[in-house]
Measured scan of single mutants.
Amino acid sequence: QVATSTVRILGMTCQSCVKSIEDRISNLKGIISMKVSLEQGSATVKYVPSVVCLQQVCHQIGDMGFEASIAE
């Protein structure tokens, strides 16, 4: 089973930030795809909930120095 959710990301300033986040999160087990939008300050994450949760994704992004939260 696959889920798609949006994560809000604060602190991104350039495409390099976007690429860094996409590269790191895409390597997590259970992540199918991730598309980060600098303009919208968010990311669309396609993932397998039984393998990885959005809290883990937000935590990983937080470790990179950005502020991440699950969009309502």
Rank of each mutant, 00 (worst) to 15 (best):
V2Q: 07
I31D: 00
S33K: 09
Q56I: 09
I9T: 00
T4W: 10
T6H: 10
I9R: 00
Y47I: 02
E72Y: 09
M34F: 15
T13S: 09
S26Y: 07
S20D: 14
K35V: 12
G62T: 15
Q60S: 11
N27H: 11
S33H: 08
R24P: 01
S26W: 05
E72A: 11
L38I: 06
K29Y: 12
G41E: 14
G30Q: 02
L28M: 14
C58D: 04
C53K: 13
G65F: 05
M12E: 00
G65A: 02
S37F: 13
Q40C: 09
I61V: 04
A3G: 04
S37G: 03
Q40K: 14
I21F: 03
Q1W: 12
I31P: 00
V36G: 01
S16H: 12
Q55E: 12
S50N: 08
E22T: 08
N27Q: 13
T13W: 15
V36R: 00
S5P: 04
S37T: 07
I31G: 00
T13N: 05
V48T: 07
E72W: 09
Q60N: 09
V52G: 02
E39M: 11
M34T: 04
D63N: 12
R24G: 10
S20A: 09
S69H: 10
I25W: 02
G30A: 02
Q15E: 12
T6R: 14
Y47P: 00
N27A: 13
V51P: 00
Q15S: 11
V7A: 01
V51A: 07
M34G: 01
C17S: 04
S69Q: 10
G11E: 02
L28W: 06
K19P: 01
S20R: 15
K19W: 09
Q15G: 13
L10D: 09
T6F: 13
K29V: 13
A71W: 14
K19N: 11
R8T: 10
Q1N: 10
G62F: 10
A71T: 10
V7M: 12
C17D: 15
V45H: 04
G11Y: 06
E67N: 11
A71F: 11
A68E: 02
C17P: 03
Q60V: 15
C17K: 02
R8D: 09
V2L: 07
M34L: 10
G11F: 06
L28S: 02
S33C: 07
P49C: 05
C14Y: 02
V57H: 02
A43F: 05
K46I: 15
T6S: 09
S50M: 07
K29L: 12
A71K: 09
Q55H: 13
V45T: 00
V18D: 01
S33E: 10
A71S: 11
I61Y: 04
S69V: 11
A68S: 06
Q60K: 09
T13L: 10
T6A: 06
L54V: 07
K19T: 12
D23E: 12
I32Q: 03
G30K: 03
Y47C: 04
Q60E: 15
M64I: 07
C17I: 05
V45E: 02
S33R: 07
I70A: 08
K35I: 09
C17E: 14
M64Q: 02
L28C: 04
M34D: 00
S69N: 07
Q55P: 06
T4G: 02
L10K: 13
V2C: 14
M34C: 11
V52C: 03
K35G: 03
C58V: 15
G11P: 01
V36I: 11
T4E: 10
M12L: 06
G65M: 04
S20H: 07
Q60D: 10
Q55A: 11
G30E: 01
C58P: 05
C53D: 13
L54A: 04
I32R: 04
G65R: 02
I61A: 02
V57E: 03
S37W: 08
K29S: 12
G41P: 00
E67K: 14
L28N: 03
K29C: 07
I9Q: 00
Y47K: 00
T6G: 06
P49Q: 07
A68K: 01
T4I: 13
I70E: 06
P49V: 07
S5A: 15
A43S: 04
Y47G: 01
H59Y: 15
T6C: 13
M12Y: 03
I32V: 12
K19L: 08
L54R: 01
F66D: 02
G11R: 04
E72D: 13
N27L: 11
D23K: 10
S26G: 14
S37Q: 07
P49F: 07
K35N: 08
I9F: 04
I9W: 04
K35M: 08
S16P: 04
Y47F: 08
E67Y: 12
S42H: 09
A68Y: 05
I21H: 02
M12N: 00
I9H: 01
D23M: 10
A43D: 05
C17R: 02
Q1A: 09
G11N: 05
K35R: 11
I61Q: 03
T4P: 02
S5K: 08
L10T: 14
A3Y: 12
I61C: 02
C53G: 10
G41I: 05
G65I: 04
S16A: 13
F66L: 02
F66I: 02
E72P: 09
V57N: 01
I31S: 01
L54N: 01
L38D: 00
E67C: 06
K35L: 07
Q40S: 14
R8Y: 14
I9G: 00
I32F: 05
V51Y: 06
Q15C: 05
K46H: 09
S26H: 08
N27F: 08
K29G: 08
V36H: 00
T44G: 03
Q60L: 15
C53A: 10
S5V: 12
V57C: 03
A68R: 01
V18P: 11
K46E: 11
V48L: 13
S42W: 08
A68T: 09
P49A: 07
V57M: 03
V45D: 01
S26V: 08
K29A: 12
E67I: 14
I61L: 10
S42V: 11
S42M: 15
V52N: 01
S5F: 06
C58T: 12
K46C: 12
S26E: 07
E22M: 08
M34I: 15
L10H: 12
E22Y: 08
L54P: 07
C58H: 07
V36T: 03
D63F: 10
S20Q: 15
C14V: 03
F66Q: 02
E67F: 14
G41N: 12
S33T: 07
V36F: 05
V45S: 00
Q15R: 08
I70V: 12
A3Q: 10
Q1V: 11
S26C: 07
N27R: 14
V18S: 12
E22N: 05
I70T: 07
G62C: 11
S37H: 11
Q1G: 11
Y47M: 01
D63W: 09
V48W: 12
A3M: 13
N27T: 11
V36Q: 00
R8C: 13
G65D: 02
I61W: 03
G41L: 10
K29Q: 11
G30M: 06
M64Y: 03
Y47D: 01
E39F: 12
M34E: 00
M34S: 02
K19C: 04
I25D: 01
S69F: 14
R24E: 11
D63M: 15
V52A: 04
Q56N: 11
I9N: 00
M12A: 00
V45A: 02
V45N: 01
T44V: 13
S20V: 09
D23C: 06
K19H: 10
Q56E: 15
K46G: 04
A68P: 05
S16K: 14
S20P: 03
S20T: 13
T6L: 13
I70N: 05
V2D: 06
